[in-house]
């Protein structure tokens, strides 16, 4: 069976005033159709870069990305990106933000109302079509952000720390909502997160990246039965998974903090 999404030897380096910064090194990953995969790792280990490469927003230094066996070179309609800070256009209503994708693609306007209604119902925001983003709370804006990604009609959803800016109660609720949405839409999801419990709760598989340059350090299959509700977080199996992931990450976080300290020292000298 061919993977929904696969990367082969994906490497990305940035050159900043003559020094070469390798953000990602030699990532080879396969994601199956309908699979929910989370990526965790220390800050600056290249998680965002990885998602941007898959979406076609930046070009890899070497390696390749394939979706349904076709190579990706630029942003297309088979992948949708959910950005960390909602990225809603403040001068547009929820409706016009939600259908921004179809509008850019020149799809018929007569279908837009229905697209918005379906997407907003799915994210639990029905009736908010004519509100402006600044009239909504952070959690509601993030729902619109997800709704906008849904109207694209893509099979693959890339999410970059979508709940990082939310308070912990709202985040918990949004995790439950995302669980429901991903199951209803049967989308393939790649989620970057700092919350280990979020990764375990939502995922079929968790990928742990090393400190910079980001490589695949470990891969953990989450073998918890579905459907899962939020109570699963209090079971011993769940806690065993989070402990295991935390131990794997801890070294990397320490190392990346060490790197920062060295950099600071070098900058001062």
């Amino acid at each position: 069976m061919v993977a929904k999404l696969s990367t082969r030897g994906l490497t990305k380096s940035f050159s900043k005033n003559q020094t070469e910064l390798v953000a990602l090194k030699d990532l080879t990953i396969d994601v199956q159709d309908g699979e929910f995969v989370s990526i965790v790792g220390a800050s600056g280990c290249g998680k965002t870069t990885f998602l941007r490469l898959i979406d076609g927003l930046t070009k890899p230094t070497s390696g390749s990305i394939e979706i349904d066996g076709r190579t990706i070179t630029k942003p297309g309609q088979d992948i949708a990106f959910v950005f960390q800070n909602d990225g809603l256009l403040p001068w547009r209503t929820v409706h016009r933000n939600t259908t921004f994708g179809p509008e850019l693609q020149g799809r018929p306007k007569s279908t837009f109302r229905k697209l918005t209604q379906d997407a907003l119902r799915l994210v639990g925001l029905n009736g908010f079509d004519e509100h402006y983003p600044h009239e909504l709370s952070g959690g509601m804006r993030q729902r619109v952000n997800i709704a906008r990604a849904l109207t694209v009609g893509a099979d693959v959803l890339l999410m970059d720390e979508p709940f990082a800016a939310l308070d912990s109660q709202t985040r918990e609720i949004m995790q439950g909502e995302l669980m429901r949405i991903s199951q209803q839409t049967k989308k393939t999801v790649l989620l970057v997160t700092h919350q280990i419990d979020e990764a375990v709760y939502l995922s079929d598989r968790v990928l742990i990246f090393t400190a910079r340059p980001g490589r695949l350090k470990e891969e953990i299959v989450i073998d918890l039965p579905r459907p899962r509700d939020l109570a699963v977080k209090r079971t011993p199996e769940f806690v065993r998974y989070t402990d295991r992931i935390w131990r794997a990450i801890e070294e990397e976080v320490r190392e990346s903090i060490g790197l920062e300290v060295q950099n600071l020292a070098r900058a001062k000298a």
């Binding site: 979406d55 927003l57 630029k74 942003p75 297309g76 309609q77 949708a80 990106f81 950005f83 960390q84 800070n85 990225g87 256009l89 921004f100 994708g101 850019l104 693609q105 694209v152």
Partner: peptide
């Protein structure tokens, strides 16, 4: 920058 990335991700043309 995020707003431009959003549009690019939704395959907007430079004119759009």
């Amino acid at each position: 920058r995020t707003l431009i990335d959003v549009a690019r991700s939704l395959s907007a043309t430079p004119i759009q």
